[in-house]
Design a protein around this nucleic acid. Structure first.
Length: 341
DNA sequence: AAGATCGACAACCGCGTCGGG
DNA sequence: CCCCGACGCGGTTGTCGATCT
C-alpha cells in the first residue's frame, strides 16, 4: 500500500539504506531537488517525494550539524520555546545545522524532562500546580529548597533589557481568542500601554495593583504581566488577539474588528488597519529578529557572568516566580539560580 | 544469557497553506 | 472562485541499541 500522497506509486517505507541515501545525495547534488514529487523517479528510488524530502532535510543535507546539543543550544531552545511554543521549525531556524525534527526530538526526549524535574510545566514554563501547592507559604515540610532552576546570567542593565525586548507584537499570532480576556487597565510608564488581565478565576493571575510583587516582562516600554495562564502552551494566552502593537513605534494596530473597546485610547491617526496575514508576516519577521538576538547573545556571552542574558532578568524571573511564592535568587558562578522553598 | 524496558532519533501521517490552472 | 498538487509543519509512531532485571 502506498502513501496517500503518492498512491499510484509503489513506495518503500521504513529506514533508508546506504544505497538509497547515495542515490538521493547524488541526484540532489547534481540536479537539485526541483519538485520533490519527481525526485524519486529521477533518482531511481522507490520512495515517495515526501519521504525523499524528509530524508534530505533531516539527515543528508551537507550543512547539518551532527551530534548532541550543546548547553548553549539547549538554552536557546528553551528560551525561544518559551515564546513560540512548539514551533519547531521556527526554533530550528535559529540553530544553524539543526532541523525541526531534531529540535523536537531533543525537546521531547530531554529538555521536557529536565523542566518537569525542575517543577516547571514544559508547555507554559510556569511552575507545575503540584509544585505551587507544595511550596505555598514556605511550609515546614520543605525546609530546604526543593528545586533549583538555573538560568543564564541575568541582565541587570536597562539597556540590555531594551535590546532584548521581546516583540510584544510577536506574541499575538499565538494567542487564543479568549472571551475571558480583556484589556482592563493601563500602565503609564510611557505611552499608553495596556496591561491585560486574566479574568478567569480558575487561573492564577494577578495585576500590578492587586499584588505589588507581580512580575512583569519588560518589553521596551511595554510592561507585560506574565504569570501566564495555561490557556496557551506558549504561556502567553493573555492578550486580546485582535489588537497588536508595533514594537518599533509602540502603536496599537487594530485588526479588523468593530466592537473594539481599545478605540477610546487611540488617536484616530494611530489606528492602522491591516490585513491580518500581513501583520502575521511582520510578526514572524520580528520573531526571527529577536531570536537572532537571543542566539547572538548566547554565543557572545557564554563566559561572562552578568552580561549575558536570554530574555533579560525580568523575563526569566517572572516566568518562574509566581507572585505568591517566596523565592531566593543568588549568583551561582556564571549562572543564576532560583530556589523555590 | 535472555527477555523486558527505556531512550534517542528516524520516519511517517495528517492537516493547513499556498500557488497555479 | 474552486480545485488540485506540492510543500511545510507538528504530532505520533516505529526502530534499534543500551541498559536493566
Amino acid at each position: 500500500m502506498g502513501h496517500h500522497c503518492c498512491s499510484k506509486q509503489k513506495v518503500k517505507r521504513g529506514l533508508w539504506s546506504p544505497e538509497e541515501d547515495e542515490k538521493l545525495i547524488k541526484h540532489i547534488t547534481t540536479f537539485g531537488h526541483g519538485s520533490w514529487s519527481s525526485v524519486p523517479k529521477l533518482a531511481g528510488l522507490e520512495r515517495c517525494g515526501k519521504s525523499c524530502r524528509l530524508r534530505w532535510i533531516n539527515y543528508l543535507r551537507p550543512d547539518l550539524k551532527r551530534g548532541s546539543f550543546s548547553a548553549q543550544e539547549e538554552r536557546v531552545i528553551v528560551d525561544i520555546h518559551r515564546i513560540l511554543g512548539n514551533r519547531w521549525a521556527q526554533i530550528a531556524k535559529h540553530l544553524p545545522g539543526r532541523t525541526d525534527n531534531e529540535v523536537k526530538n531533543f525537546w521531547n526526549s530531554c529538555v521536557k524532562k529536565k523542566l518537569i524535574a525542575q517543577g516547571l510545566d514544559p508547555n507554559t514554563h510556569n511552575l507545575l500546580p503540584s509544585h505551587k501547592a507544595n511550596n505555598n507559604g514556605c511550609n515546614l515540610s520543605h525546609p530546604k529548597p526543593t528545586s533549583v532552576f538555573f538560568v543564564n546570567s541575568p541582565v541587570k542593565d536597562a539597556a540590555s533589557c531594551m535590546d532584548m525586548n521581546i516583540p510584544f507584537s510577536t506574541l499575538l499570532s499565538l494567542l487564543p481568542n479568549d472571551p475571558n480576556i480583556s484589556s482592563s487597565h493601563f500602565s503609564h510608564d510611557g505611552p499608553n500601554i495596556p496591561i491585560y488581565e486574566q479574568k478567569n478565576p480558575n487561573i492564577f493571575w494577578t495585576t500590578e495593583e492587586q499584588n505589588p510583587n507581580t512580575s512583569f516582562m519588560d518589553f521596551s516600554m511595554v510592561r507585560f504581566p506574565i504569570s501566564s495562564p495555561p490557556s496557551h502552551p506558549s504561556g502567553f494566552g493573555i492578550v486580546e488577539e485582535d489588537c497588536l502593537w508595533s514594537s518599533s513605534q509602540l502603536q496599537p494596530i487594530e485588526l479588523d474588528r468593530q466592537d473594539d473597546h481599545h478605540d477610546e485610547m487611540l488617536q484616530p491617526e494611530q489606528q492602522v488597519k491591516k490585513p491580518q496575514q500581513e501583520i502575521i508576516k511582520a510578526i514572524e519577521v520580528e520573531i526571527d529578529r529577536k531570536a537572532d538576538i537571543i542566539l547572538t547573545r548566547e554565543q557572545n556571552n557564554m563566559d561572562s557572568s552578568f552580561e549575558s542574558s536570554n530574555f533579560g532578568f525580568d523575563f526569566v524571573e517572572s516566568a518562574v516566580t509566581p507572585s505568591d511564592m517566596y523565592c531566593n535568587s543568588y549568583d551561582h558562578g556564571d549562572e543564576f539560580a532560583w530556589e523555590y522553598c
